[in-house]
Amino acid sequence: MNGSRVEWAVVVFCVWHSVDLLTAWRYSPLDRWGWLAFVLWLAPLAWMRTGAGRWTALAWIALALALTSAMAQLNVLAYAALAVSLAALAPWSWRALPWLALSVAWMPVLGWACQSLPLNTVTVLRLTLAAASVVAGWRAFRK
């Protein structure tokens, strides 16, 4: 797996500030199956090239977002920080940007933005975006 120890430590810091994700996935009907979307979104990291160049700036961006989320009690920033911190472990290229953007598939903000849609439609949309993130990640990270 890519990533230096400090980059993994940044991921842990972001996970710390993202624990409310578990509550949202468990209790919020609009966020159900978010955990599956998260697993699907993570999957492309399993086949990324090891040892390829990473972009340290991403770890700094994740750190800044997580710190701001902690100070402002704004979860949406914590989840964005988690996504960026995980992206910092991967070999970065601009082709990975769609994959990073599709991290919205596992975030509660998707449920909030689509709250006027029927619950099942939100779940289908969430999993469709997660499936799209697998394709985008495969294109970005394939060896």
């Binding site: 230096s4 940044v10 810091f13 340290t56 700094w60 997580a66 902690a70």
Partner: peptide, 23 residues
């Protein structure tokens, strides 16, 4: 690379301290 990592460790330590302090 080591220098960049060291700066990141320092940034992380500051972030942890500030996060706890704010709580």
């Amino acid at each position: 690379k080591t220098t960049a990592n060291n700066f990141l460790w320092i940034g992380l330590a500051v972030a942890v301290v500030l996060s706890l302090a704010w709580e």
